[in-house]
Design a protein around this nucleic acid. Structure first.
Lengths: 336, 336
DNA sequence: CTGAAAGCGCTTACAG
DNA sequence: CTGAAAGCGCTTACAG
């Protein structure tokens, strides 16, 4: 019976009439504002309930100037990073009654503009910009909007709130784990130098070695593509060397998988002879590797949740620390 | 200068006043309705432009009963299928000025209910339900809502519009490709029988063989997990047999990758000795396989786009054919 | 403790 | 061809 009245939506007038009060009183009762006898408030609420009243959020927003709606912009159509971030945002916000507009803009500036305008027209309370790379901005300018903006996993202006995984801390975790396994000759096989994360992780790798009193070698860091193929090539090159490594920290799980496969093809036992740690905890890669990859998880869902909360605080005019928020990564120990 | 007036939003009153007309006339001019001199209409438009007027979509929706907003429900937080579908929906709808609410509900019925209620409160014009499996519904009942619902890549009621990839046609494409390569002994290594797609693809596999006059063998279909490991195991079993296959159609790209890797480990050359075709065109798997996988693409983005358009037609009261829409898959030829 | 009235920003019959 | 008025469904000072 309930919820079918397509044409018969019940309004606050219906509730007020049924309860024998004015709409003003009904509104106050339902929003727990104003002052009235507990009895009246209760009665109005029960009538509302009985009639199946659900306030029209549009009408409410029109007066309250709050739409309980935020816009989510992403340039990532296929990637794996964005989905957990978005899920975290959506989850974190729904608890506060706020809904999320999803907009995929890819690298298209005009499309991005159209989406932003549409969101603004729909009176979003704020915007979250999300991407696949922390060193590239989305193809649209968001800094002088009339609503607050939070950046997650994409580059934002210096005076904005930007949330990213703590790549340095993650890398340290990885290297310290290798050291804890008793590894002494640890190399780092990672992605292209054009990525900012490559440098951050490399620095942390070197610092962790130093902190443990292990030598930091010039040729300990090898850069290539973010691909399995590069993992294979790197192992080929490493196994040409006089002193082969006994620990390999990889810049992502795909490289790590290539490394592990290449080691197996050389009859090098992982993890007995060599320990390998990846980065990303991309489950589909990490779990299918033989043995399954030990890797670093960036806690993207939590990052999304925090991005949502940060935006909410901004919307409410609460104080929020500007700048780069680096969120901790976690080590996931599997078999490598 | 433009777009900064946080507190100074320009309304249609401002436009009307500046143009020396009533708000009614202004509204008509801007919406291209009513009748008035071209001169007046132009003048009003120019003033609106000059003032940077952007209509408040909330206010507009309140009277028009159309929010130009739809809800998108998904149970898929990490999967690869949903993101392209969502991107297609978002892309297809933004052209019509409609925005999309993203809701990830996972397997949580209460959460799903909360999201649906929130969407309804915000007066969405319709809802699209999306999932990761075509044979399972979302954990929430959507059939008696006051707005139209379209299902994409998830199970819907028989009298609804449900869009899915044409698994049979995709499988046929795969098998016909193998036959065109001159393969005669073609097996099908696929996922668990609990998945509906497994049966659809199996049937199409058998039909394609028959149509080509090739024998359909009892043990030609092998079921296991959707995982690389199963690909390895299947090859191990197959290579025990007297007559080994020369063509392998796999139920997904992960299995196909396991198969290709296992063949290489046995020094069987792909594609010289054996041709392999996968399913999904999951680029990260297909492209990293050595050699890269030939596979079936489900055109998920297009599926999303069509889901969006179908919903729009429903919202506009236009005729839409109910039932299961099977959208064509495409063969992507790579190296296997 | 409760209600009449005005208003949020737009659109839409209806008059003229 | 144009405008005054009412209305969409709610909330919020302001009176009483």
């Amino acid at each position: 019976m309930s919820g079918q009245g397509a044409s018969e939506r019940v309004t606050i007038y219906d509730v007020a009439a049924a309860a024998g009060v004015s709409t003003a009183t009904a509104s106050k009762a339902l929003n727990d504002t104003g002052r009235m006898s507990a009895e009246t408030r209760d009665r109005i609420r029960r009538t509302a309930q009985a009639l199946g009243f659900r306030p029209n959020a549009l009408a409410r927003s029109l007066t309250s100037k709050r739409s309980f709606t935020v816009g989510l912009l992403t340039d990532d159509t296929y990637g794996r990073f964005t989905l957990p971030v978005m899920a975290g945002i959506s989850e974190g916000l729904i608890d506060h009654g706020v809904s999320v507009f999803l907009c995929t803009v890819e690298d298209n500036p005009e499309l991005a503009k159209v989406h932003v305008d549409a969101m603004l027209d729909k009176q979003v309370d704020g915007i979250i910009a999300t991407g696949k790379r922390i060193d590239r901005p989305l193809p649209v300018e968001l800094s002088h909007l009339s609503v607050p903006v939070v950046y997650a996993l994409t580059a934002g202006p210096a005076d904005a709130v930007t949330l990213v995984p703590d790549d340095g801390q993650g890398a340290r975790l990885a290297v310290e784990h290798l050291i804890a396994q008793g590894r002494k000759r640890i190399v780092h096989v990672t992605g292209p130098g054009s990525f900012k994360v490559v440098h951050e992780r490399t620095r942390a790798y070197a610092e962790a070695l130093e902190a443990a009193g292990l030598p930091v070698r010039e040729d300990g860091v090898m850069r290539g593509a973010w691909a399995e193929r590069w993992g294979h090539e790197a192992v080929a090159a490493l196994w040409e060397r006089a002193d082969r490594p006994d620990g390999i920290f990889c810049g992502n799980d795909q490289i790590a998988r290539g490394v592990v496969d290449a080691l197996r093809e050389r009859n090098v036992d992982v993890p007995r002879d060599v320990s390998v740690v990846g980065f990303d905890n991309w489950e589909i890669v990490a779990e299918q590797t033989r043995p399954p990859l030990t890797t670093i998880d960036m806690n993207l869902k939590e990052l999304g949740r925090q991005a949502g909360h940060a935006l909410l605080r901004l919307v409410n005019g609460e104080a929020v620390e500007k700048g780069l928020w680096k969120l901790p990564c976690a080590l996931v120990v599997r078999g490598s």
